[in-house]
Design a protein around this nucleic acid. Structure first.
Lengths: 115, 115
DNA sequence: ATCAAAGTTTGATCTCCATCGTACTTTCGT
DNA sequence: ACGAAAGTACGATGGAGATCAAACTTTGAT
């Protein structure tokens, strides 16, 4: 059935800080978020550079989706992933920015401010 | 010995995002950070409103200290806790603010922006 | 000197979660 | 219709961490 292929996404208002933090505390998931942030558009599950098996990756994508951080939709056999940037910024202003910025090497930050 | 009573604090440069996130992902520890943020000064371990036993609280304080989020020092028999605000802001700008802001009820945020 | 107060340490549980392999489902080419 | 590609679902497993009680340490007050 096609209905099964439309996964559940939480409404913006039901997104909790607890779940968001639980999501981004994992390095693999944080890497997914970072890659989505740096990319120009959405990315298929297989398009990420991840150090885990496919089944583990699926697990991480689900955690991110249920936390409200990403939106997933099918494009053929591929499952695309989109960062819910604006919505997250709306509920938790500055959070995503701070994390992604902190994720980048220190030299980048120096270049941006004092460089 | 008094030397034993000076716990180890990580240098600012050795503070990692991973450890900070692992620290704040726990609700009890996040509550400690929030209470420190809202308070005017430092707070003794016993001065916090926490839903755990004393030994568990000790555990949480250690995690926060080793992550670089708080500074601990003795004042008599009491162990005082200070938020390393400026230092954290230096390495991870905006992170603490975003988390503490997200922690507050939504009504507060509304009042601050649109109210 | 004693005692209480404030934390710490230790050891033991207990739960949660990241991980994997295997089997399954769905879609797209041919 | 068949096979390959892309993910998902399902157990199973292993390790990390949150929790507590009990014993201990240090300090301050009496």
């Amino acid at each position: 059935m096609e209905a099964d292929r439309i996964p559940h996404h939480p409404d913006v208002r039901t997104i909790t800080l607890q779940r968001v933090l639980e999501a981004v505390v994992d390095p693999v998931r944080r890497s997914i978020v970072t890659q989505l942030c740096d990319a120009s558009g959405d990315i298929a599950c297989g398009g990420f550079d991840l150090p885990v098996s496919k089944s583990t990756a699926t697990h991480h994508f689900r955690i991110l989706r249920e936390a409200g951080l990403i939106r997933q939709y099918y494009a053929g056999t591929s499952r695309m992933n989109a960062l819910r940037r604006d919505e997250i910024d709306e509920v938790f202003p500055g959070l995503l920015d701070a994390i992604v910025t902190a994720e980048r090497p220190a030299s980048d930050a120096e270049r941006a401010t004092a460089g």
